[in-house]
Amino acid sequence: MLWKQNGVKIIAALGAVAVGAGLLGAAYAESSGDSPSLSYRSSIRVPDQAGGEKDEATRLAALAKIDATRASSAALAHVPGTVLEVGLDNENGNLVYGVEIKTASNAVKDVKIDAGNGAVLHVDAADHEENEEE
């Protein structure tokens, strides 16, 4: 009888450990690079729709209220330098222009511009090696 009670306790403890490990794994997966959480929100939200990249590019261009030239100007006003690349992107449902700028110190910055109103939403170091692989 004593073994049976201890066996139940051990099984219950192992079950609790398994549940805890599962929750920790889910939390880690959510915090990893697979599902980035953005610290900004654009004025134009992009609904999820099926289709290829070409279809998405056409759809995004139709939603944008500013063009790439205005996005570049807004980015340069915030981060002086030379524009390397401009692209219209769906960043987790946010319609933004990604503007890569090379600064005077040769740092490359990725400036996110709201495609609806031209506001600077975010600036960070560009992962230039990753872009070259694409």
Rank of each mutant, 00 (worst) to 15 (best):
M1D: 13
M1Q: 11
L2V: 11
L2R: 13
W3C: 05
N6S: 07
N6Q: 10
G7V: 02
G7W: 08
V8R: 13
K9C: 04
K9G: 00
I11D: 00
I11A: 15
A12P: 00
A12M: 00
A13R: 01
A13P: 00
A13T: 07
G15W: 00
A16L: 15
A16V: 13
V17C: 12
V17T: 13
G20F: 14
G20H: 08
G22R: 08
G22L: 12
L24I: 07
L24T: 08
G25H: 09
A26G: 09
A26P: 04
A27H: 09
Y28S: 08
A29M: 11
E30K: 13
E30D: 12
D34N: 13
S35N: 15
S37C: 06
S37E: 14
L38K: 09
S39D: 14
Y40P: 07
Y40G: 06
R41G: 08
S42D: 06
S42M: 04
S42V: 04
S43Y: 08
I44G: 02
R45F: 05
R45V: 12
R45P: 00
V46W: 06
P47Q: 03
P47Y: 00
Q49T: 09
Q49L: 14
G51S: 02
G52N: 14
G52Q: 04
D55Y: 10
D55S: 11
D55L: 08
E56S: 15
T58V: 13
T58Q: 14
R59H: 05
R59F: 09
R59S: 07
A62Y: 09
A62Q: 14
A64P: 01
A64Y: 03
A64S: 15
K65W: 04
T69D: 15
A71D: 03
S73Y: 01
A74I: 07
A74Q: 10
A75C: 08
A77C: 07
A77D: 14
H78P: 05
V79R: 12
V79P: 06
P80M: 08
V83M: 13
E85W: 10
E85D: 15
L88S: 05
N90L: 05
E91G: 00
N92R: 12
N92H: 03
N94L: 05
L95Y: 00
L95Q: 02
V96K: 03
V96L: 03
Y97Q: 02
Y97E: 01
V99M: 03
E100S: 11
E100N: 14
K102A: 08
T103R: 02
A104S: 05
A104W: 00
V108T: 12
K109I: 06
D110Q: 10
I113T: 01
A115D: 09
A115I: 04
G116F: 09
G116Y: 10
N117P: 09
G118I: 02
G118H: 02
A119L: 07
A119G: 14
V120G: 06
L121S: 08
L121E: 08
H122Q: 11
H122I: 01
D124N: 09
D124W: 01
A125V: 08
H128Q: 15
H128L: 14
H128N: 12
H128R: 13
E129R: 10
E130P: 01
N131S: 14
E133Q: 06
E133W: 00
E134W: 13
